[in-house]
Design a protein around this nucleic acid. Sequence first.
DNA 1: ATAATGACTGGGG
DNA 2: ACCCCAGCCATTA
Length: 129
Amino acid sequence: MSRSPADSWYVNGPTQERIYLVVRQIPPGKVSTYGDIAAIVGDCTARMVGYAMAAARGDLPWHRVINAQGKISPRGDGGGEELQRARLEDEGIHFSDGKVDLKRVRWLGPSVEWKIANGFAPDPTWREK
DNA sequence: ATAATGACTGGGG
DNA sequence: ACCCCAGCCATTA
């Protein structure tokens, strides 16, 4: 088997589908963070979100997920970082000093109605520790 | 069975 | 600002 992010060598399990479902709700022009997504998904950590993004394919807007410092997270092989930034800038997101202004472009999450309808807890649960 | 590893984060020294 | 640590999943060697 070849080793590439497109393969399943660092996919993190069933939680991955819930992560993807939430990531798909991030609107263009907004970004979210690994930790924020994890909190919405519940029973999940920022790391798992990162692993899931690494395995992302297809139409998933993986580029809208960045780290809590407002920066594009460095990959081991560097792949995709430039593409991510380019796609965000195409959506109107401005980078200053390598960071986005999270206060302005941070997505606040899906509506409570959406969460309930899709089986997520109404309130975020932080599971980082 | 053990160890490495891959887009993380907040807290403490 | 920097370094260290815990927390935590799936897959591979």
